[in-house]
Amino acid sequence: MDLAVEFKKLQKSQEQILEMLKQSNTEKKELKVYSLDELAAFFGVTKRTLYNWKDEGKLPLIIVGSKSYMTEAQLQTFLSKNEVKPFNNRRF
């Protein structure tokens, strides 16, 4: 295995990734915002439960006036931090 050839391949891949990131940053991005009603339906809980999660520091909500919202980025972060993984797949 030639290390110089492998290095060139890695360098080319890195350049492609950086170019893709640069293009995605220049594209206009739409900010998706979810209301409490949408979040409650998504999680299958009541709005009171969402407020409890917020009070416990689990759910980041943006409060504008008397309305509460969550951005798509916040939702993705929340889901990744609170992912439920299978405990055990044994069959009895």
Rank of each mutant, 00 (worst) to 15 (best):
S13D: 13
K85G: 01
W53H: 05
E72C: 04
D2C: 01
Y51P: 01
I17N: 09
V64R: 01
N89K: 14
W53A: 07
N88Y: 02
S66C: 03
K8M: 05
S80T: 13
E19R: 02
N25C: 03
I62Y: 12
N89E: 08
P86E: 10
R48K: 02
S68H: 09
A40Q: 13
I62K: 07
E38N: 13
L59G: 06
R48E: 13
S66F: 00
T77C: 03
K12D: 01
L75H: 12
K67G: 00
K12L: 02
N25F: 04
F7H: 03
K32V: 12
Q23L: 13
M1C: 04
Y51T: 00
G57D: 15
V5N: 06
N52G: 08
A73K: 11
P86H: 04
T46I: 11
A40K: 11
F78Q: 14
L21N: 12
P86I: 04
Q14M: 06
K9V: 08
R90T: 12
E72W: 04
N88K: 08
T46P: 04
Y69A: 08
F7K: 02
R90W: 15
A40Y: 09
T46F: 12
Y34Q: 13
K12I: 00
V5D: 03
Q76C: 01
W53R: 11
K67W: 08
E15P: 02
V5K: 04
A41G: 14
A40H: 10
V33W: 03
F92N: 06
I63E: 14
K8W: 02
S68T: 04
A73P: 02
A4D: 02
V5Q: 03
S68P: 07
K67I: 08
Q11V: 00
V64F: 00
Q16N: 14
D37M: 07
G57A: 10
L18H: 13
Q23R: 05
M1D: 01
F43V: 07
F7T: 00
F92S: 11
T77G: 01
F92L: 09
L75D: 09
